[in-house]
């Protein structure tokens, strides 16, 4: 009788020992699943924000490009007309070429910046865990370059192109 009781006790102990870890493991995997799901949701939200930011930047870039093309074309037309009238436009010609290079630099730097943002948006949640912040740092650095390009273009207009046009204007007669 005692033997049977002892045996039953051992069997019960073995059962408890095997069931408890199994239950704990099940609980743990359930928690991991929920965590993964939350991570996925959070990443999808972040991806949507990045795509929205890309759209906003693209809109700004298109406005800038449009204006740059508009002013470049007007200055070029002014230059040609003044040249046809026999004025010395060599200084403006040279500065316009420098300005055009600035427009090109702006376009190239902007493309590199947007490519970086698109690279971030295309990450999987697992990849994002490892490289999101380092890529974001790079994107921020590239954005600073784009902003500086836009500032350089603006300053070059104000300090150089405008002064060149003003200089040629002063050579024109007051009225015809």
């Amino acid at each position: 009788m005692r033997k049977a009781l002892l045996l039953a006790g051992v069997v019960a102990l073995l059962l408890v020992c095997s069931v408890v870890p199994a239950l704990a493991q099940e609980n743990q995997s359930g928690e991991e699943g929920r965590l993964r799901e939350r991570l996925q949701e959070r990443w999808e939200f972040l991806q949507q924000r990045i795509e929205l930011i890309i759209a906003r930047f693209n809109n700004n870039q298109q406005r800038h490009q449009k204006v740059y093309e508009q002013v470049r074309s007007a200055v070029s037309e002014f230059l040609e007309k003044m040249k046809a009238k026999g004025y010395d436009v060599s200084k403006l010609e040279q500065d316009l070429a420098t300005w055009e290079q600035m427009f090109e630099k702006f376009a190239q730097d902007y493309a590199a910046f947007i490519q970086k943002l698109e690279e971030i948006a295309a990450l999987s949640p697992e990849q994002a865990q490892g490289s999101f912040y380092s890529l974001l740092r790079e994107a921020r650095q590239l954005l600073r370059v784009v902003r500086q390009d836009a500032m350089d273009i603006r300053l070059f207009y104000q300090q150089t192109i405008r002064a060149d046009i003003q200089e040629l204007r002063n050579q024109l007669p007051e009225s015809v």
């Binding site: 800038h64 002014f78 784009v146 207009y157 405008r162 046009i165 003003q166 007669p173 007051e174």
Partner: peptide, 24 residues
């Protein structure tokens, strides 16, 4: 004449002021 170029400069100023580096 000069006033033509003044008008051109005004248009150029306005166009350049319509965009800002702060867009980035």
């Amino acid at each position: 004449k000069r006033s033509d170029v003044d008008s051109l400069l005004r248009d150029l100023d306005q166009a350049m002021d319509s965009v800002s580096p702060e867009d980035f």
